[in-house]
Every structure is written in C-alpha cells, then in structure tokens.
C-alpha cells in the first residue's frame, strides 16, 4: 500500500492505495464519491471522466498513485457555491440532455473541459469532442444542444430531432 495525497474539488485528501487501484476506484470506493460512474471499465464510454490538473481524463484508465499531488475535479464539485446547478448542468436539465442519467457525470465533465478550451464551439466541434462519451438513451441531440446553450449560443434553430 502507498499513501497518496491529492486535491479533490479544492480539498486535500489522502488515502492508502494499492498500485493497481484506479483513480475511479479510489474516488468511489475509498472516498465514497460515487458521482463518477464506471460504465464500461475499458476506457470506451467516458462515464468516469474527471479533470486531472485541468485536463479531462478517464479515471478508470489511470491509477490513483499517478494522481499523487494532482488537482482533481469531479462532478461533485461542479455545482455553484450555493448548491444550485452550474450553467452546464442547468442546460442539461433545460434541454433534456439526459434520460437515465448514467453517462451524465462524464458528459458534464467533458463539456466543461471543451468549453474551457473552446468557449463557443460549433455543433460539429461539440460532437467531435464527445467521441469518447457514450450515451445509450438520448441519441446525443439534446446533449449537444445543452452544451451549445451552456456556451451562450442560440439553440432555437437546432431541431429537437
């Protein structure tokens, strides 16, 4: 076992991990932060996306020990300080960007990473950025619409297909 210390959503946390402990496992099973979901566990689906030092990564495909000293952001840290939904989360609700909700934590974290890099993405840029996030309910249209809306763009012309 190795001791790891990292900052998660601005708060310093430590824990004892095995070499093989995944960052996703550390978050969920050791810290009980179950907002980060594990869908496929094969780095395909993106439900486990978190930010490590500001970059979107799949937390099921990174070891907790590799996050030693890192700044980690998870879905639990996304809401506004008063507990209300942040602009991306609110847009997902307003535009029906989720149905079962399983993929949503990863979708929101990927969307946040995209909008930080590219504050006004085109529809095709949004779709390209979501290549690694799989949703089996929505057909993606409303997720794309929500992210476009969260970026402050007019989405009235995007049909609700």
């Amino acid at each position: 076992m190795t001791k790891v210390t990292m900052k998660i959503n601005g708060k310093e946390v430590s824990g004892e991990v095995e070499g093989r402990t995944l960052l996703a496992t550390f978050l969920r099973e050791d810290l009980h932060m179950t907002g980060t979901h594990i869908g496929c566990d094969t780095s395909q689906c993106g439900a486990c996306v978190v930010h490590v030092n500001g970059k979107a990564v799949k937390s099921c495909t990174m070891f907790a020990a590799e996050a030693e000293g890192a700044d980690v952001a998870t879905i639990e840290g996304q809401a506004n300080a008063d507990g209300s939904l942040n602009v991306i989360q609110q847009a997902f609700q307003d535009h029906h960007g989720l149905q079962c909700g399983f993929c949503t934590p990863g979708m929101v974290m990927s969307a946040a990473a995209l909008l930080k890099e590219n504050p006004k993405p085109t529809e095709s840029e949004v779709r390209a950025y979501l290549e690694g996030n799989i949703c089996r309910c929505t057909g993606y249209h409303n997720i794309v619409k929500a992210i476009m809306a969260a970026s402050g763009q007019d989405v009235s012309a995007i049909a609700a297909e």
């Binding site: 993106g46 970059k55 979107a56 990564v57 799949k58 990927s110 990473a113 290549e131 690694g132």
Partner: peptide
C-alpha cells in the same frame, strides 16, 4: 488518436 480524454493521457 482515440478521443479527447485518451489524448490527454
């Protein structure tokens, strides 16, 4: 290569 999260690692 891969997708954005894969490219970040």
């Amino acid at each position: 290569i891969g997708d954005p999260a894969v490219r970040n690692r």
